[in-house]
Write a protein that binds this DNA or RNA. Structure first.
Lengths: 124, 124
DNA sequence: ACCTACAGGTACCAAAAGGTGCGTAATTGA
DNA sequence: TCAATTACGCACCTTTTGGTACCTGTAGGT
């Protein structure tokens, strides 16, 4: 038992809440989980939905999320293969928070852009 | 003008909302912004508060957040140096969402741990 | 006299993230 | 018959991330 703290403090690097945070703090997880909030999806559909993700990163991230019980992988055992991914209840609760984050980004990115420009002009 | 879309869609890789998301999706930004929610802090205090962060990553991340207008750096121009960091209103609004995320991690990490163990047992 | 704290900057190096291309195997449509 | 779709796994490569160690310069404590 190397890293079992019950404190539940993300500021403590030895608490596995930190691991949870690092799992979430992934560019792709932040898009995949909210994408699945609308309902189950096949990997091909996710690939089309999430612009810019490579197939490798998509499956890699899905595996990671599955390992942590956030996503459920349902293999129909047919050929050609048909696999569906959906949120677990735990994943759904996280997805709610991530949706809020995505919406924040969509709402406020112009302000970030403006701040960056101001910053550049200041040092010129 | 290379990357100026007004759609505001994080699923579109050419929209700078995506840049905003990638800025946020950083292990350290997710801890620094909520830490500053309690009030202005000096870099030394942040270093002690956020376990496991190196001084390099702390300043690097603070610079990045400052560039994007989320954090304000106030240099008292004294010697020895005294510098305070605080949230801008924009940063405060983001911090609210990130606090929710941190709390999610603190609440649910045991379930993630349990899921990982179940996953390992299954493949053994 | 020496060490510490303060807020960094810089250089070097290791590790992780992430992209591209190739192979699997079967089915459907041109 | 040839290509595309489906969902991957694997190997190779580049880029990014992040850590360690060392430097500045001053004020205050022992």
């Amino acid at each position: 038992m190397a890293k079992t703290q019950k404190s539940g403090d993300v500021y403590d690097p030895s608490c596995s809440a930190r691991d949870a945070l690092e799992l979430i703090a992934s560019k792709w997880a932040m898009l995949i989980l909210p994408a699945l909030a609308d309902g189950p999806m096949r990997s091909g559909a996710l690939l089309r939905r999430i612009g810019g993700v490579s197939q490798k990163m998509l499956t890699q991230t899905l595996r990671e999320l599955e390992k942590n019980g956030l996503v459920i992988r349902q293999d129909m055992q047919t050929v050609p293969p048909h696999v569906e991914y959906r949120l677990s209840p735990l994943g759904a609760s996280l997805s709610d928070v991530l949706v809020a984050l995505d919406r924040w980004a969509e709402l406020h990115f112009p302000e970030l852009d403006a701040a960056r420009e101001r910053f550049l002009r200041r040092r010129s």
